[in-house]
């Protein structure tokens, strides 16, 4: 398997008047050809900003450190002109907000054809034909009429389909979908997810699905990466994450999902506490303040990703960033790799 996207120790920082915000704090992962990777995390976990930085779409006060390579080409720090040859063509992105994501004063047709004219050098007429094909592919009724319409004349679900069609125009190798169903109502959500599942087989694109909804991930993804406080807490296959969660945070997320099959409980479970303030992240484990199993080591040492089960194995498959041996045996694993924050601090002081 060849990697389409290789990310190594990526960090995202925002300069604000109140100090620096650390949105992403060193994540490494690969997205391979044809693979579907789910990035799960609650609001403010850094999941969106991680991919905004890969696409060069950070707000002006944001900066990216580390490395993100598309087929060996470094994207971090790439001049915009060069980046514009890749984004929209090789890597495409669809956003959460379909209602405001399309330019209100341009017809759908123009917004679609301009991508093809730009990247493929197509004539307006050829581009229109291709746009029409794509609209049919994403199952938009009366596709021909839509090209002449403005975004406000279409429903939210329809607009999101158009965003997806627009992203797929150039047959990208990587499609980043940032919460594509969040702003839609439930039935439309289901339609869009069905569509994406179909498109996964039709197109050869690798897909990154950013979401806070574990249900979405379960239906579509091969791999899952759980993010918290700008770091990966746990990574693994969908089966591993759902049936054998190894990190207390993942277990908490799964427990807070409402289930139809279970008997009605008094109250829906919620992880206690608040997500961490990204301006003052804890030095060690970011989840320490909310974790039921927290112990001294979590406050002194930052756990790094390690193989679940056999701690000496290489970093493949199911990994977690936690000191615990396991959730069933919640004592500190003596050999769990970590960064000693207390010692680091003493040295720098």
């Amino acid at each position: 398997m060849t990697a389409v996207l290789e990310v190594r120790d990526l960090k995202v920082r925002f300069a604000t008047p109140d100090g620096e915000v650390s949105a992403v704090n060193g994540v490494s992962f690969d997205v391979n050809e044809g693979e579907c990777v789910g990035i799960v995390g609650e609001s403010g976990s850094g999941k969106s900003q991680l991919f905004m930085s890969v696409m060069g779409l950070l707000a002006k006060n944001g900066r990216t450190l580390g490395s993100a390579k598309y087929r060996g080409t470094e994207l971090v720090g790439m001049p915009v002109k060069a980046l514009n040859k890749i984004r929209g063509d090789k890597i495409a992105m669809i956003f959460q907000d379909s209602m405001t994501g399309l330019t209100p004063h341009l017809r759908i047709g123009k917004q679609m054809t301009e991508v093809l004219v730009q990247h493929k050098g197509m004539s307006e007429a050829d581009a229109r034909k291709r746009a029409l094909e794509m609209l049919n592919l994403v199952r938009i009724p009366e596709a021909g009429r839509r090209l002449a319409q403005y975004p406000h004349e279409l429903s939210g679900g329809m607009r999101q389909r158009i965003m997806i069609a627009m992203a797929l125009l150039c047959e990208p190798e990587l499609l980043i979908a940032d919460e594509p169903t969040t702003a839609l109502d439930v039935t439309v959500q289901a339609q869009i997810l069905d569509l994406m599942a179909d498109l996964k087989t039709v197109t050869k694109a690798a897909i990154v699905l950013i979401t806070h909804d574990l249900g979405t991930v379960a239906g579509l993804c091969d791999k899952v990466q759980v993010m918290y406080g700008g770091r990966f807490m746990e990574t693994g296959t969908v089966q591993e994450i759902f049936y054998k969660p190894a990190h207390p945070y993942t277990a908490g997320l799964l427990a807070s999902m409402p289930r139809l099959t279970e008997e009605r409980q008094e109250k829906l479970y919620a992880i206690p506490g608040q997500p961490p303030n990204l301006q003052r992240l804890p030095k060690a484990c970011p989840f320490q303040e909310r974790c039921t199993y927290v112990h001294d080591r979590c406050i002194d040492e930052l756990p790094v990703l390690r193989q679940v089960g056999d701690a000496n194995a290489t970093l493949t498959g199911h990994t977690k960033a936690c000191h615990l041996v396991s959730l069933q045996n919640p004592v500190s694993a003596p050999h769990a790799p970590s960064i000693n924050v207390a010692a680091d601090e003493a040295r720098s002081a």
């Binding site: 696409m55 060069g56 779409l57 915009v80 002109k81 980046l83 514009n84 040859k85 890749i86 984004r87 929209g88 063509d89 495409a92 992105m93 956003f95 907000d97 405001t100 994501g101 399309l102 330019t103 209100p104 004063h105 341009l106 123009k110 301009e114 991508v115 730009q118 990247h119 965003m163 627009m166």
Partner: peptide, 26 residues
């Protein structure tokens, strides 16, 4: 700062098109 300009950037459009086509009228 709006979302549709971000979309235009994500589409890999050059700066001059983003300004003239996607930004100016609004």
């Amino acid at each position: 700062r709006s979302n549709f300009v971000r979309t235009a950037h994500a589409k890999g459009l050059p700066e001059h098109l983003i300004i003239t086509r996607h930004t100016l009228r609004a």
